[in-house]
Amino acid sequence: MPVDVVTVEGLSYSYNGAGVLSDVSFRVRSGDYLGIVGPNGSGKSTLIKAVLGLVAPTGGTVTLFGVTPDRFRERQKVGYLPQRLKFFNPSFPATVEEIVRLGLLGGKRFPKRREAGDDAAVEKTLGYMGITDIRRKLIGELSGGQQQRTLLARALVSSPELLILDEPTTALDPETRENFYKLLQHINQDHGTTIVLITHDTWSIGRYASRFLYVDKRIIFDGTFDEFCQSEKMTAFFGADVQHVICHQH
């Protein structure tokens, strides 16, 4: 039976006096594949950072597996793939395997030591992501698609119950992007991993995600993609042309 993985109630966030998010409420249940869409600057990334506890909301409440993010200790249950690494250094001397292994730190207590089972988890994830043969390569030597697979492997190595991805396909070519979405679908359907995906790629959301959230500083729509495209309320809100572009962008 599905349980609440994420709950967001009346979430507000402002920065330097400017409102970024206002009164946002939604739930993510186990097994969901939630696509979050919205224009640039609509607060999507801030929303998931608030869910992860990376920013403190100015109002409202967030829970992760029933606990507020600041008290949430079972970090191995959550895998996170950011839009881009903040200060990515192409000459960073870490190998693919070292980066994937970083994903096992969540949930470990101090001092964080290598544990029995870590090596097997890394091997399994490298194989699953098809990056075993590049395990000794440095991150800066990889193509965009390989880098993204490596970072996704880092997010998956702890076998998370919730996977949060922030525009993960921005730097990928169309073929790699399509393969990436198929991989996410496989992770969601075959492993039961709950997925929250931020993207501008609404057409792919329509094909793969089970739920669709349109955010523009507040929740504009929460339902399935088909419901969104057939909603007269949304037609009135966006105008028929814009709604058509959102629903048929590919």
């Binding site: 992860l52 506890g53 990376l54 949430f72 200790r73 970090r75 959550v78 996170y80 950011p82 690494l85 903040k86 200060f87 990515f88 960073f92 870490a94 070292e98 980066i99 970083l102 994903g103 730190l105 969540g106 949930g107 101090f110 001092p111 964080k112 880092r154």
Partner: peptide, 22 residues
């Protein structure tokens, strides 16, 4: 030595490290 993994994680990416509970 005690903080090696945490130091490596924040050196690679501070936000990712924080999302892992570091």
């Amino acid at each position: 030595t005690l903080f090696y993994h945490e130091l490596f994680a924040i050196t690679f990416d501070e936000e990712l490290a924080e999302s892992s509970g570091i």
